[in-house]
Write a protein that binds this DNA or RNA. Structure first.
Lengths: 114, 114
DNA sequence: TCAACCTTCTCATGGTTGTGTGAATGTGTA
DNA sequence: TACACATTCACACAACCATGAGAAGGTTGA
C-alpha cells in the first residue's frame, strides 16, 4: 500500500515539488524503491494531510515546523531557550540589584519552578 | 539604573536598530520614560547579552526565538505540534494496516509515552 | 536654551524561503 | 521496447527577513 510521489501529491493537496521540500526539511521522509522512487505509506499520507491543516489553522510556516523539529532533535537547544525564557520574565525591575547576576547563573544550573 | 537605547546598544553589542527589532519580536521589552524613551534595566541588558550568545552558539535566528516565544504563548499550538510529531515517528511501515487510523486518532486524545 | 540624544516612519538592500519549471537522465510496466 | 512517470540539479522569482540609513520631529538635562 504505497503511493508514488505524484499520487501522494494529488491525494494530499501538496505539489510533488513541495513533497520533496517537506522531505528535505525532515518532516515526512518516505521510503524508497530499489530504483530510488519515493514510496509514501498511509502513515505518511495522514501526516501530510494533518501537516497541511496544522499550518492553516495556526498560521505556521513549514520552516517553523522545521524549527520545532530541531528543538526535539537538539535538547540542549531547547534547554538553552528554556533557561533564557525563564530568566527575568520580561519585567526585571523590582529585583534587588545585587542579587542579579548570581540569580541569573543559578537558573542556568537547575531550571526553576515558574 | 537604566540605560538609554544607544548606551544599551554599545554595552550589549546590538545596534539600536536591532534593539528596536528585538523589542518588536517581543523578546526584550524595555520600560519607557514619560517622554517615550526606551529604558533598559540590568535584567534586560543581561538578557540581550545571553540572547546574543544563544544565537551564536546554536546557529539560531531571531525569528526562531520569536517562534519559540509563540510556542509558549500559544499552548494549543505547542500541543498541536506535539501530537503531530508524536504520531508515527517517521517510520510507519511495519504497523498492521488496519489499526492505522484508530491508532492515529487515539494519539490525538491522550499523548502517548514515547 | 540648546546640543545631543530619542521617537516613529519610510526607503533600501542583500540574503533566505517557498514554489514553479525545465533539462538531462533513470525506472517500471504492459 | 516504449511510454509514462521518477530522479536530481539548476534557474527563476515574488515575498519576506534582518539591517542600515535618513527624514521629521520630540525629550532630556546641564
Amino acid at each position: 500500500m504505497t503511493l508514488t510521489i505524484h499520487e501522494a501529491a494529488t491525494t494530499t493537496g501538496w505539489s510533488p515539488r513541495m513533497l520533496r521540500y517537506v522531505e528535505q526539511l525532515g518532516l515526512v521522509e518516505p521510503a524508497r524503491s530499489p530504483g530510488g522512487y519515493r514510496l509514501y505509506g498511509p502513515g505518511q499520507l495522514q501526516r501530510l494531510r494533518t501537516l497541511r491543516t496544522l499550518l492553516e489553522t495556526h498560521g505556521v510556516e513549514l520552516g517553523d515546523v522545521g524549527f520545532a523539529l530541531r528543538l526535539r532533535r537538539e535538547p540542549e537547544l531547547a534547554a538553552a531557550l528554556d533557561t533564557w525564557f525563564d530568566t527575568t520574565p520580561t519585567a526585571p525591575e523590582g529585583v534587588p540589584d545585587t542579587d542579579w547576576l548570581s540569580f541569573e547563573q543559578d537558573k542556568h544550573q537547575h531550571l526553576l519552578n515558574r
